[in-house]
């Protein structure tokens, strides 16, 4: 009798452990996906306020004046520099997808590290790109190392 009970108890405990493990795992994934979605949505709003006048809402840029952000080899190869130039601006020649650009961009110093993380998450995922949500602490550490 007693052993039957203890067996049942053991079974319930085991089940709970498995369920908890599975649940905690999916919840972690879920949390990550939610964060990514949230950053993407916020990033879109911020992009349209701060960037799209020049780079266009669809990220194509304009002529040889403003370089594209969508499908841009510069974004693919210069992740950290992208974070730096959003905050600090950029001057001089820039080659994007084989085309030379030379319009100075002033930095948007008012943006917080969180806002930059959101914008970067958006531009790296909006136009066919795939990248996990960019963490605020990652932005902060990149910004600390920007050459001014």
């Amino acid at each position: 009798m007693c052993s039957k009970y203890s067996q049942l108890l053991l079974f319930i405990v085991c089940c709970n452990i498995v369920v908890a493990a599975v649940f905690s795992c999916t919840s972690k994934e879920h949390k990550k996906a939610t964060k990514s979605d949230q950053y993407f949505v916020q990033g879109k709003v911020l992009y349209e306020v701060n960037c799209s006048n020049c780079h266009q809402k669809n990220g194509t840029g304009l002529g040889r004046l403003y370089p594209p952000i969508a499908k841009s080899d510069f974004l693919d190869n210069h992740f950290e520099e992208v974070i730096c130039l959003i905050k600090n601006g950029k001057e001089g020649e820039l080659i994007v997808n084989g085309t030379q650009y030379n319009m100075a961009m002033k930095g948007i110093t008012k943006l917080t590290d969180l806002e930059i993380a959101e914008i970067v998450t958006y531009i790296y995922n909006a136009w066919g790109g795939q990248r996990e949500a960019v963490e605020v602490k990652e932005v902060s550490s990149v910004l600390a190392g920007c050459s001014k």
Binding site: N53, C54, Q56, L62, G63, L65, Y66, M103, A104, K106
Partner: peptide, 16 residues
């Protein structure tokens, strides 16, 4: 003016 970041780029997109 060319260094304007607010409405001018939109105006130039539309004028194009």
């Amino acid at each position: 003016f060319t260094s304007c970041r607010s409405i001018c780029p939109i105006m130039k997109t539309q004028m194009l």
